[in-house]
Design a protein around this nucleic acid. Structure first.
Lengths: 192, 192, 192, 192
DNA sequence: CCTTAAGCGAGACGGTACGTCTGGTCTTGAA
DNA sequence: TTCAAGACCAGACGTACCGTCTCGCTTAAGG
């Protein structure tokens, strides 16, 4: 009922670091558990004892391994257009760095291949970021900067989706100008 | 330099059919080349002779195997809002069927894993559909239904991206109401 | 540097048994590693981890799998002619059983195809049997039953070679009469 | 009932040459029909039209491709011992050259793996050589140089088997001295 | 001369087996 | 009880050959 050895924090971190590095070096489908274990100097069982599958390790590595961007809320200067622009520009610059693109591709592959991983990533990566965006939009709506009926979740989804589509379709990251245009369309509307 | 047996059209079609069926039955990550060959009654080498990877077969199966939706232009009734709504509702109903979702996930996984496949899919699937949308939008802009400076490519990207995001985030597939809201935001703007 | 699971003795024996059975059922050239693994209930890698080729497995199966005849010395009754006759008859009866012929053919194929296997078989199968024969001949020479200059290694080689030739050339196993004639020629000489 | 193109002699020879060269270069088990066809500049069907299997081509290549030693009878000087010595020395020198050893190994592998090939080789290679030897031995028996009851087939088999055993046991190829010892044992007997 | 039928080089075909790689589990001895 | 190490079963991978099957093109004989 009593003791036994405790989980090794250094092993946990070594695994996450190794997974992160290998993910960026080789991409999701060429990433192997054996390689993670070898690079981390860890037995494979130590990985499987704490994570259920390759996807779970990768998701965790992205989230805790210092890979994913920190959860930063859009600014709140009172000007929703300027704030969204700033937020979207922030993301485009991260994606332009290349690391961001690899990450999105890897996470997308993991999402598309493994339902369980998709859920984890949605809960701990996508949803929190989207929530921050929704919060800012809701603030703007209440402040009268958006129409009183403005469909906040739809707006958030449109903003994020436009980014995702650029990454997946072009393999060429979006620019700051793209960000500005998206904000203009979404807030101002395209109608004449 | 001359002779040699010709490529077997029946084998080509059998492979594409088998790939399509297995993709829908088992999903992309549980799809194997061995299974495709076995179901198609074909040697594995006949697959590898003509396609370079699993992703390439799947892409081809989607495009030529009757899996991908036909290339249908948005209607042109003169009312851009109604036409976009119809076009987006059409897509949401396809995605709601489940088949569409599996397909998008499979193609996304293939895109995220294999650069060459991404290029093929973009050229033969994404770009044509996007182009039809852009054409309709351009018509509307010229007709004065959009602002004269309306950034047509951005608008198209935003519309498609919103769909993609819904599928990948693995929430419920988008509904007709979602489609209407997206159109309202994109055309009418969220600003108040 | 320390740990690691130990080699599974039960797998080792299952592989050797399966190889032996399949060798006798199907012959050397129709024997496959896949079939050995399947029958032994073992992963293919477990075979390749410990043996380098099909020939190596077969050689080991013959030697340790209870397939090869046990290492039995020629009798020593004091009468070299009778003893050689008994020894040679023993071999011919084994070869006449059919099992022996298959085995010799399989081992010969392995020998002719794979130098490394040839070395192993020579050291662990051929040489020991030949040595026993040489020992008995040497005893006879010292006892004056052979000429004092009798070339023992040559005599041993001639006796064994005559057996081998019968197996390889006729595909019809030698008989006890053949054995007697060989002994008569080798000991008594053909000269008149 | 009418004409048709005749078999191409140049293709036949090209195939035999290619098979011979590849056999010596790579050994029997690494020899492929595809490689023979490619080197001979010939379609595979042209091989299969005239030979039934790889072994059949190899056997033919050895026999007609100028690979196997010509069928030379033992000399007949009247002295059977000297003649056998000459014959056996001739063979040992051929085997010592290395080409002979490769050939014997290849043919042995073919024999051990393919019953049909074994039959062809026995009829057209082994048996004719053995027959010449038997003829010379029979002459000697009639001439009184061997005992009147001398078992000529056994003697021939013993002589050939001793050579074969040396090659297959992969020790050094036999020497002229070995040849002399074998003749001495077989003719003079080992008994004291 | 013209048909007809076989042989030809080429190379794709359905298969089988290869030897390797990876996923996820199990075992060992040390900590 | 966890750890590093590493063997285990399972099964997909992509390649190599097998022997068969078209292709379109020579060749010859026979009409």
């Amino acid at each position: 009922m009593t003791g036994g050895r405790r989980r090794s924090e250094s092993s946990r971190l070594a695994i996450l670091d190794a997974a992160r590095d290998l993910l960026l070096e080789r991409g999701y489908e060429r990433l192997t558990i054996d390689a993670i274990a070898a690079r981390a100097g860890v037995g494979k069982q130590t990985i499987y004892r704490w994570w259920g599958s390759k996807g779970a390790v990768v998701a965790d590595a992205a989230l805790e391994g210092g890979l994913a961007p920190p959860l930063v809320a859009p600014p709140d200067t009172g000007d929703i257009e300027a704030d969204l622009r700033a937020w979207l520009r922030d993301w485009t610059s991260r994606l332009a760095s290349g690391v961001g693109t690899s990450l999105i591709l890897a996470l997308t592959a993991a999402t598309a291949e493994d339902h369980a991983v998709a859920d984890v990533l949605y809960e701990r990566f996508t949803a929190p970021h989207e929530q921050l965006l929704r919060d800012r939009l809701e603030l703007a709506r209440v402040a009268g900067q958006l129409g009183p009926q403005a469909p906040v979740p739809t707006i958030a989804g449109v903003l994020i989706g436009s980014l995702l589509y650029r990454v997946l379709s072009r393999q060429e990251p979006p620019t700051a100008d793209d960000a500005d245009l998206v904000v203009r369309v979404v807030l101002g509307g395209a109608g004449g």
